[in-house]
Design a protein around this nucleic acid. Structure first.
Lengths: 182, 182
DNA sequence: CTCTGGTCGGTTATATTATAACATTGTCTG
DNA sequence: CAGACAATGTTATAATATAACCGACCAGAG
């Protein structure tokens, strides 16, 4: 059978992303978990994309740098990254984005409870919010129903500010790709 | 080539559900759409369940009363019912529930924009909310971001009031099946 | 150092959810 | 009835996700 050489260039991403990846690695180390090569690659690929990425898209891209990757390879990495709070799953898109708070090292790794996402139907980009009022209104409503909240999914679909300012037919889907985190 | 006898008992559901189905039929008629036999069956099956139902579960149940049903049969019915605002899709579960406002004939058929769902992890039941404060907080936050909202998905997972009052090991998954709408 | 237990990832197969595409049948309307 | 459009039948396949089992590797205990 094949030798599973992981043909990973040591730092295949933009410097800005590598910095985030280094921080993520440190974050994991602090929590006694490991951001392994595969996990780091997957996280990098997600951060590199301007829009949420599906698992199989991710798999295709991963294969460029890691031969022999299969669906479980990607899903395991995604599960890990989500557990650590480094990424979010956008339910409506069955796709993944980096957590907008990855940088803020004071978050407990569980910002997932209260994040909200604005999903643009035109350009596909998502923006992460963490609106206090939404969170509170939601907690209150749940409390009134006697309901113990564990996790919430709040996803708002519509048209983003950038896309609203340009005509519908403009090639907004082709706008420059840039990391969306920050 | 089979003869496609639709072996539908005229009123296979509980009287309480049949009443809802009759109203739904009238609601559709008012909007110049048709709640056909298949659509009515699918809606009935959804209303009959105490928990959200997956499309393929629905397909299995549908086949008892409608031979030859295939995935598109179910998905077309689901698309129609969702378009009419008679059901909601719970994204986190990839499953469907009746709209809690189906009865209130003053709703424009598009309550979907602002509904929230409490999903119990223990018993699987969902409760539909329509909390004004959540909706407003959300609209405000979106407006501040310059975002034009078209649809929102708000799903809260946790433990419902009923399940919280009983020990974890109680067979809460087996509680009596009763229509959840109302 | 070596053993050992657990984590990580490879590999194959399959489950689950959803849609494409085209043919056929049904229904309304003039 | 004829024509148009809506609804459904039918077959095939796409897209997303997990099960199950195995071997490699690593970290800590002794």
């Amino acid at each position: 059978m094949e030798e599973h050489v992981t043909e990973t260039a040591p730092h295949p991403f933009d410097p800005a992303i590598e910095i985030l990846l280094d921080r993520a690695e440190q974050f994991c180390a602090d929590r006694r978990t490991r951001l392994t090569d595969i996990r780091r690659l997957v996280l990098g690929l997600i951060l590199q994309s301007s829009t949420p990425v599906g698992a199989y898209d991710l798999l295709d891209r991963l294969r460029d740098q890691h031969r022999g990757a299969a669906p479980p390879t990607v899903y395991r990495a995604l599960d890990f990254l989500a557990d650590q709070g480094l990424i979010h799953r956008i339910e409506r898109l069955a796709a993944f984005v980096g957590c907008g708070h990855m940088l803020e090292c004071d978050h407990g790794g569980h910002c997932g409870h209260r994040a909200q996402f604005l999903i643009c139907k035109r350009c596909g980009a998502t923006q992460e919010l963490e609106d206090r009022r939404i969170g509170e209104a939601l907690s209150d409503a749940a409390a009134r129903a006697g309901f113990a909240v564990e996790q919430s999914t709040i996803e708002i679909e519509g048209i983003c500010a950038a896309c609203r300012t340009m005509p519908e037919d403009a090639g907004s889907k082709l706008r420059a790709v840039a990391p969306r985190v920050g």
